[in-house]
């Protein structure tokens, strides 16, 4: 699987209040949340972002609260993937569990500017900046996590597991 898109670069420690402020947490409709994605970091972001775009960030992306609404807001804004130097752990779990493509790669933030085009080969973990002609490799995904991803998320994994147990 390959994904290609336009890049938006963010810094270190982008927190979940920044990704989706708490004032919108009374809904979990992805479209509604997507309209407010990154609102307190960049108020115009949701009007500029296009389906298939990719976020590139520094360290500790998604720190703060456990709100899965942060992943929903990113998906609802049409963002195809998040590439970061590191992720806060609850955000990372939420992304894996619900099938948002997230890859960790050392130095990824320094390789991109906003507006560049990125191509990501999910299987090999290759990340290519097509604008600048530079590439790097994401950290490999552990086998167990790959199993959840292959099942189509944690709930599909649960369904499969219950079916297997019943047999």
């Amino acid at each position: 699987m390959t994904t290609q898109g336009r890049v938006w670069v963010f810094g270190d420690n982008i927190d979940t209040d920044g990704i989706i402020p708490a004032r919108y947490l009374t809904t979990f409709d992805a479209k509604e949340l997507g309209a407010h994605c990154m609102e307190d970091v960049d108020p115009e972001f949701s009007s500029k972002v296009k389906p298939g775009d990719v976020l590139v960030a520094g360290k500790n992306f998604g720190c703060g609260s456990s709100r899965e609404h942060a992943v929903l807001a990113i998906k609802g804004a049409g963002i195809a993937a998040v590439l970061a130097e590191s992720f806060a752990r609850i955000f990372f779990r939420n992304a894996i569990n619900t099938g948002l493509l997230v890859l960790e790669a050392d130095g990824v933030r320094g390789v991109f500017d906003t507006g560049d085009t990125v191509r990501v080969d999910v299987k090999s973990g290759t990340i290519v900046n097509e604008t600048k002609g530079r590439s790097l490799t994401a950290k490999p995904v552990p086998a167990f996590i790959q199993e959840i991803l292959d099942a189509g998320g944690l709930m599909e994994y649960a369904k499969k597991k219950l079916q297997t147990d019943a047999r």
Partner: peptide
């Protein structure tokens, strides 16, 4: 809720997760 780590004060392993993890744990 991210502040679930609080209960470690009693000598428990306790950690915050998201809604899908919660759903999975309620069922499984």
């Amino acid at each position: 809720d991210s502040h679930t780590c609080t209960y470690g004060a009693l000598g428990a392993f306790s950690t915050g997760v998201g809604s899908t993890d919660l759903a999975y744990a309620i069922a499984m």
